[in-house]
Nucleic acid binder design. Structure first.
Length: 207
DNA sequence: CTCCAGGAGTGTA
DNA sequence: TACACTCATGGA
Protein backbone atom coordinates (compact mmCIF):
# COMPACT_ATOMS: atom_id res chain seq x y z
CA UNK A 1 0.00 0.00 0.00
CA UNK A 2 1.62 3.21 -1.13
CA UNK A 3 1.41 6.42 0.79
CA UNK A 4 -0.36 9.53 -0.38
CA UNK A 5 1.98 11.76 -2.35
CA UNK A 6 1.95 15.50 -2.14
CA UNK A 7 4.84 15.85 -4.54
CA UNK A 8 5.15 12.81 -6.83
CA UNK A 9 7.70 14.53 -9.05
CA UNK A 10 9.97 14.87 -6.05
CA UNK A 11 9.76 11.17 -5.40
CA UNK A 12 10.39 10.41 -9.06
CA UNK A 13 13.38 12.72 -9.04
CA UNK A 14 14.91 10.86 -6.12
CA UNK A 15 14.11 7.44 -7.55
CA UNK A 16 16.04 8.27 -10.70
CA UNK A 17 19.26 8.68 -8.77
CA UNK A 18 21.27 11.26 -10.68
CA UNK A 19 24.47 10.15 -12.31
CA UNK A 20 26.64 13.04 -13.33
CA UNK A 21 24.53 16.14 -12.83
CA UNK A 22 23.13 18.42 -15.45
CA UNK A 23 26.28 20.40 -16.22
CA UNK A 24 28.14 17.27 -17.21
CA UNK A 25 25.04 16.08 -19.00
CA UNK A 26 24.86 19.23 -21.11
CA UNK A 27 28.27 20.92 -21.33
CA UNK A 28 28.39 24.34 -22.98
CA UNK A 29 30.42 27.54 -22.87
CA UNK A 30 27.45 29.90 -22.97
CA UNK A 31 23.71 30.18 -22.79
CA UNK A 32 23.44 30.85 -26.48
CA UNK A 33 25.45 27.75 -27.23
CA UNK A 34 22.84 25.82 -25.25
CA UNK A 35 20.07 27.51 -27.19
CA UNK A 36 21.70 26.43 -30.44
CA UNK A 37 22.09 22.94 -29.04
CA UNK A 38 18.41 22.83 -28.11
CA UNK A 39 17.51 23.24 -31.77
CA UNK A 40 20.20 20.97 -33.19
CA UNK A 41 19.43 18.11 -30.82
CA UNK A 42 15.96 17.57 -32.26
CA UNK A 43 15.72 13.98 -33.49
CA UNK A 44 19.50 13.70 -33.43
CA UNK A 45 22.16 12.10 -31.29
CA UNK A 46 24.28 14.38 -29.15
CA UNK A 47 27.52 13.18 -30.77
CA UNK A 48 26.36 14.61 -34.09
CA UNK A 49 25.25 17.85 -32.49
CA UNK A 50 28.67 18.19 -30.87
CA UNK A 51 30.36 18.19 -34.25
CA UNK A 52 28.06 20.85 -35.60
CA UNK A 53 28.57 23.02 -32.54
CA UNK A 54 32.34 22.57 -32.74
CA UNK A 55 32.27 23.77 -36.34
CA UNK A 56 30.17 26.78 -35.41
CA UNK A 57 32.55 27.55 -32.59
CA UNK A 58 35.60 27.31 -34.84
CA UNK A 59 33.97 29.84 -37.11
CA UNK A 60 33.06 32.18 -34.24
CA UNK A 61 29.36 31.86 -34.97
CA UNK A 62 28.11 31.10 -31.48
CA UNK A 63 26.80 34.56 -30.78
CA UNK A 64 23.38 35.87 -31.75
CA UNK A 65 24.72 38.65 -33.97
CA UNK A 66 27.28 36.49 -35.75
CA UNK A 67 24.83 33.70 -36.39
CA UNK A 68 22.11 36.09 -37.50
CA UNK A 69 24.38 37.54 -40.17
CA UNK A 70 25.79 34.23 -41.39
CA UNK A 71 24.82 33.32 -44.97
CA UNK A 72 22.18 30.56 -44.89
CA UNK A 73 24.00 28.20 -47.23
CA UNK A 74 27.16 28.46 -45.16
CA UNK A 75 25.22 27.78 -42.00
CA UNK A 76 23.59 24.76 -43.61
CA UNK A 77 26.92 23.22 -44.53
CA UNK A 78 28.31 23.75 -41.04
CA UNK A 79 25.46 22.11 -39.18
CA UNK A 80 25.06 19.30 -41.71
CA UNK A 81 26.27 16.53 -39.37
CA UNK A 82 23.32 17.25 -37.05
CA UNK A 83 20.79 16.30 -39.72
CA UNK A 84 17.69 18.19 -40.93
CA UNK A 85 20.20 20.87 -41.79
CA UNK A 86 18.01 22.99 -44.05
CA UNK A 87 15.18 23.53 -41.62
CA UNK A 88 17.49 23.70 -38.63
CA UNK A 89 19.54 26.41 -40.32
CA UNK A 90 16.37 28.44 -40.76
CA UNK A 91 15.40 27.75 -37.15
CA UNK A 92 18.80 28.93 -35.93
CA UNK A 93 18.59 32.12 -37.93
CA UNK A 94 15.24 32.95 -36.38
CA UNK A 95 16.56 32.05 -32.95
CA UNK A 96 19.64 34.24 -33.40
CA UNK A 97 17.53 37.16 -34.54
CA UNK A 98 15.27 36.79 -31.55
CA UNK A 99 18.21 36.67 -29.14
CA UNK A 100 19.67 39.72 -30.86
CA UNK A 101 16.61 41.87 -30.39
CA UNK A 102 15.33 40.56 -27.06
CA UNK A 103 16.70 40.58 -23.55
CA UNK A 104 15.43 37.22 -22.40
CA UNK A 105 16.47 37.91 -18.82
CA UNK A 106 14.05 40.80 -18.45
CA UNK A 107 10.97 39.07 -19.85
CA UNK A 108 8.49 37.37 -17.50
CA UNK A 109 8.59 33.59 -17.82
CA UNK A 110 5.07 33.11 -19.15
CA UNK A 111 5.54 35.71 -21.86
CA UNK A 112 9.00 34.46 -22.74
CA UNK A 113 7.71 30.92 -23.21
CA UNK A 114 4.98 32.22 -25.47
CA UNK A 115 7.37 34.28 -27.57
CA UNK A 116 9.77 31.36 -27.94
CA UNK A 117 6.89 29.15 -29.04
CA UNK A 118 6.21 31.57 -31.86
CA UNK A 119 9.66 30.97 -33.30
CA UNK A 120 9.84 28.39 -36.08
CA UNK A 121 11.25 25.10 -34.85
CA UNK A 122 10.46 25.81 -31.20
CA UNK A 123 7.70 23.51 -29.99
CA UNK A 124 6.58 23.06 -26.41
CA UNK A 125 9.49 20.87 -25.37
CA UNK A 126 12.16 23.11 -26.83
CA UNK A 127 10.47 26.16 -25.27
CA UNK A 128 10.61 24.38 -21.91
CA UNK A 129 14.29 23.58 -22.42
CA UNK A 130 15.15 27.14 -23.44
CA UNK A 131 13.39 28.53 -20.40
CA UNK A 132 15.11 26.16 -17.99
CA UNK A 133 18.64 25.88 -19.36
CA UNK A 134 19.09 29.19 -21.18
CA UNK A 135 16.86 31.73 -19.46
CA UNK A 136 17.33 30.15 -16.04
CA UNK A 137 13.66 29.89 -15.12
CA UNK A 138 12.11 27.05 -13.09
CA UNK A 139 10.39 24.88 -15.68
CA UNK A 140 9.55 21.19 -15.87
CA UNK A 141 10.53 19.91 -19.30
CA UNK A 142 7.72 17.87 -20.78
CA UNK A 143 9.30 15.55 -23.32
CA UNK A 144 8.45 12.09 -24.61
CA UNK A 145 10.45 10.40 -21.84
CA UNK A 146 8.66 12.42 -19.17
CA UNK A 147 5.26 11.61 -20.65
CA UNK A 148 6.10 7.95 -20.77
CA UNK A 149 7.41 7.66 -17.24
CA UNK A 150 4.55 9.77 -15.86
CA UNK A 151 2.19 7.46 -17.66
CA UNK A 152 3.82 4.53 -15.87
CA UNK A 153 3.17 6.41 -12.64
CA UNK A 154 -0.49 6.85 -13.58
CA UNK A 155 -0.08 10.58 -13.68
CA UNK A 156 -2.18 12.28 -16.28
CA UNK A 157 -1.62 16.00 -16.34
CA UNK A 158 -1.21 18.63 -18.99
CA UNK A 159 1.82 20.87 -19.25
CA UNK A 160 0.34 23.57 -17.07
CA UNK A 161 -0.61 21.14 -14.33
CA UNK A 162 2.84 19.57 -14.45
CA UNK A 163 4.40 22.97 -13.86
CA UNK A 164 2.37 23.29 -10.67
CA UNK A 165 3.40 19.79 -9.59
CA UNK A 166 7.03 20.65 -10.24
CA UNK A 167 6.67 23.82 -8.22
CA UNK A 168 5.37 21.73 -5.31
CA UNK A 169 8.30 19.34 -5.70
CA UNK A 170 11.23 21.66 -6.41
CA UNK A 171 10.11 25.12 -5.40
CA UNK A 172 12.37 27.51 -7.27
CA UNK A 173 15.48 25.35 -7.17
CA UNK A 174 16.89 25.58 -10.70
CA UNK A 175 19.42 22.84 -10.09
CA UNK A 176 16.69 20.38 -9.20
CA UNK A 177 14.65 21.20 -12.28
CA UNK A 178 17.70 20.84 -14.48
CA UNK A 179 18.92 17.65 -12.88
CA UNK A 180 15.43 16.21 -12.99
CA UNK A 181 15.16 16.59 -16.75
CA UNK A 182 18.64 15.18 -17.25
CA UNK A 183 17.79 12.17 -15.10
CA UNK A 184 14.51 11.54 -16.88
CA UNK A 185 16.20 11.61 -20.27
CA UNK A 186 19.04 9.33 -19.25
CA UNK A 187 16.70 6.94 -17.53
CA UNK A 188 14.40 6.97 -20.52
CA UNK A 189 17.19 6.14 -22.93
CA UNK A 190 18.46 3.33 -20.78
CA UNK A 191 15.36 1.67 -19.44
CA UNK A 192 12.11 3.09 -20.71
CA UNK A 193 12.66 2.26 -24.33
CA UNK A 194 9.79 0.22 -25.62
CA UNK A 195 10.51 -3.25 -24.30
CA UNK A 196 12.80 -2.79 -21.31
CA UNK A 197 10.22 -1.28 -18.99
CA UNK A 198 10.48 -4.15 -16.51
CA UNK A 199 13.59 -2.47 -15.18
CA UNK A 200 11.96 0.92 -15.01
CA UNK A 201 12.54 2.80 -11.75
CA UNK A 202 8.83 3.51 -11.53
CA UNK A 203 8.26 -0.03 -10.32
CA UNK A 204 9.63 1.13 -6.99
CA UNK A 205 7.24 4.05 -7.03
CA UNK A 206 4.22 1.84 -7.60
CA UNK A 207 5.32 -0.79 -5.12
C1' DC B 1 20.52 -3.90 -44.79
C1' DT B 2 17.37 -1.70 -41.07
C1' DC B 3 16.43 1.28 -37.26
C1' DC B 4 16.19 5.60 -34.90
C1' DA B 5 18.10 9.64 -31.95
C1' DG B 6 17.37 14.67 -25.78
C1' DG B 7 11.05 17.28 -32.34
C1' DA B 8 8.35 20.30 -35.04
C1' DG B 9 5.24 21.45 -38.74
C1' DT B 10 1.73 20.18 -41.77
C1' DG B 11 -2.04 17.64 -43.45
C1' DT B 12 -5.87 14.26 -42.93
C1' DA B 13 -9.87 11.79 -40.71
C1' DT C 1 -8.06 14.62 -30.65
C1' DA C 2 -5.17 11.06 -33.14
C1' DC C 3 -2.06 9.53 -36.46
C1' DA C 4 0.88 9.69 -40.77
C1' DC C 5 4.20 11.87 -43.11
C1' DT C 6 8.45 14.76 -43.97
C1' DC C 7 12.74 16.60 -42.83
C1' DA C 8 18.38 14.08 -43.21
C1' DT C 9 22.69 12.64 -41.01
C1' DG C 10 25.34 9.09 -38.88
C1' DG C 11 26.15 5.28 -35.80
C1' DA C 12 24.92 0.65 -34.12
Amino acid sequence: MRRVETAPLKELYELLEGAAGWEAWWPADSGFERAVGAILIQRTRWENVGRAIALLKENCLLTPSALASCPPDRLESLIRPAGFYRQKAAYLKALAEYFSRSDINSIPAARLWKELRELPGVGEETADVLLLYVAGRPRFVVDAYARRILGCMRITANNEELQAMAKAAFGDDLEDYRDCHARIVEHGKGYCNKKACERCAVKKYLA
